[in-house]
Amino acid sequence: MTLRMSLLGLSAALMLTALAMVFFYAPTDIVLGVSQRIFYVHVPLALVGFLAFAVVAVCSIGYLWKGSERMDNVAYAAAEIGVLFTSLMLITGMLWAKPAWGVWWSWSPQLTTSLILWFLYAAYLMLRAYAPPGETAARYAAVLGIIGFIDVPIVYMAARWWRDLHPNKVLGPLAEESALEPPMQLTFLVSILAFTALFAWLMTERTELRRQEIQVERMRYIYGEA
C-alpha cells in the first residue's frame, strides 16, 4: 500500500515538474518550432512502452520456467500498459507529423516498427481474451510474449532496409536529436523519469487488481456461488 501511494506521489510530482519544464524551461527548437515540445511526451512514451514489452518478455520466460502466477500477472499488466503507452505514442507522433511533415504517417523504420509492435501486443491481449481462461491463456501468452520480443530487432532491420529502398521525402526527427541543447536534454531526462514512475505506479496497481480479481473468482468457487 505504501509503495503504491509513494509511487503515485512520485509520478505526480515528476509529471508536474516535467510539464512545467516542457512549457517554461526548454527553449523552442530553432528548426522544428513549438511543435517539437510534443517530443517530451512522445519519446518517453516510446521508451517506456518498449520497456513494458521487455518486462512482458522477461516475465513470460519467468512464468514458463517457474510457473509462478505472480509473474504472469506482471506480464499481463505490462502488456496492457505497454499497448496503452504505444497507442499514445503513435497518436502524439501523428499529431506532430501532420503540421511538421504535412502527412499523418510516414513509413520510417521507427514508425513501422512501433506500429508492428502495437499490433503484436494488441494480438497478445486478444489471445488472452479468447484463449481458455487461467493457465492455458497464461501459457499461450507467455509463448507469444517471448516470440514477439525476439521478433522486434528483426522487424526493425527489415523496416530499416525497406525504408532505404523507399527513401522518405520527409526528414526524420532523429536527425536533429544529436544536437540537443542541455536544457532540452534535462527536460527529456525529467520527462522520461516521470513516465517511468507513472509506469511503475500503474504496474503495481494493475498487478494488485489482477491478483484480487483471481482471488474473488476462487472464493466464488469455494463458497459455491458459481
Binding site: P132, P133, G134, E135, I214, E217, R218, R220, Y221, A226
Partner: peptide
C-alpha cells in the same frame, strides 16, 4: 487440479 479458477 484447477481449470482456470475452478477446482476439479
Amino acid at each position: 487440479k484447477r481449470f482456470g479458477n475452478r477446482p476439479v
